[in-house]
C-alpha cells in the first residue's frame, strides 16, 4: 500500500509540474495553440525561467539569444518523469522509487543549470536510493552529480586539469564557480 501511495505522489507531482509549466508558457497572448518549445524562443520576455533566474543568478540568460539548452532540458525532464514511475524494487530488493522531493529538487537544479547557460546535456540515472544522478562525459570532461531529497547535491567534476567536488552543496544557492566553469568549458 505504501508503494502505491509513494508512486502516486511522484506521478502526481510530475503531472502537476508539467501542467504548471505549460500554464506558465501559455500565459503569453502570443503562445496559444503553439508548441511551447518554439514559443519559448519567440516570447522570452515572459520566460518561465524568470523565477528561477531571480534566485539563482544575477545575470539572466540572454533573452532572444540562442536558447540551446531547450532541447536537452525537455529530454532530460521527460526521462526523469519516466524514471519517477518506477516502483520500489525496480532494481532489486534494495532499490527505492523516487521520492517526490527528490524529483522536485532534481528538477530545480536542472532548471538552474539551464538558466546558467549549460548547453551540454547530462545523462540521467536513477540510483538505488531513489535519487537522480546527472553525468557529463565529453573528452576530458567528466562529471558525476547526485541530487538528494534534502535540497543538497554532491558532485565531482574534472576536465583533466581542474577539478571540483562537494559533498552537500545547497541547491538553493548559486552553482560554485568551479563547477560552472567546468560545465561551460
Amino acid at each position: 500500500m505504501n508503494e502505491v501511495n509513494r508512486s502516486s505522489s511522484v506521478s502526481d507531482f510530475a503531472w502537476i509540474s508539467v501542467a504548471a509549466f505549460v500554464a506558465s508558457v501559455t500565459a503569453s497572448p502570443a503562445s496559444a495553440n503553439v508548441d511551447h518549445r518554439r514559443q519559448f524562443e519567440k516570447a522570452p520576455e515572459i520566460s518561465p525561467w524568470a523565477d528561477v533566474a531571480s534566485t539563482s543568478t544575477d545575470e539572466f540568460v540572454p533573452i532572444g539569444g540562442p536558447l540551446s539548452y531547450e532541447s536537452w532540458y525537455f529530454e532530460v525532464s521527460d526521462r526523469m518523469v519516466a524514471l519517477s514511475e518506477k516502483q520500489d524494487g525496480w532494481k532489486g530488493p534494495e532499490s527505492q522509487s523516487v521520492l517526490a522531493l527528490a524529483f522536485e529538487q532534481a528538477n530545480h537544479l536542472l532548471r538552474k543549470l539551464a538558466v546558467d547557460g549549460i548547453d551540454r546535456r547530462p545523462t540521467v540515472g536513477l540510483d538505488y536510493e531513489g535519487t537522480f544522478s546527472f553525468a557529463w562525459s565529453d573528452g576530458n570532461l567528466s562529471i558525476d552529480l547526485t541530487v538528494y531529497d534534502d535540497g543538497t547535491y554532491s558532485y565531482f567534476a574534472t576536465d583533466g586539469v581542474r577539478s571540483a567536488t562537494a559533498d552537500d552543496a545547497l541547491i538553493s544557492e548559486r552553482l560554485s564557480p568551479q563547477l560552472l566553469g567546468l560545465l561551460l568549458s
Binding site: 567528466s142 558525476d144 558532485y155
Partner: peptide, 10 residues
C-alpha cells in the same frame, strides 16, 4: 564522502 563516491563512479 558523497563527492568522493561521485568521483569513483566518474
Amino acid at each position: 564522502s558523497r563527492g568522493y563516491v561521485n568521483q569513483l563512479r566518474a
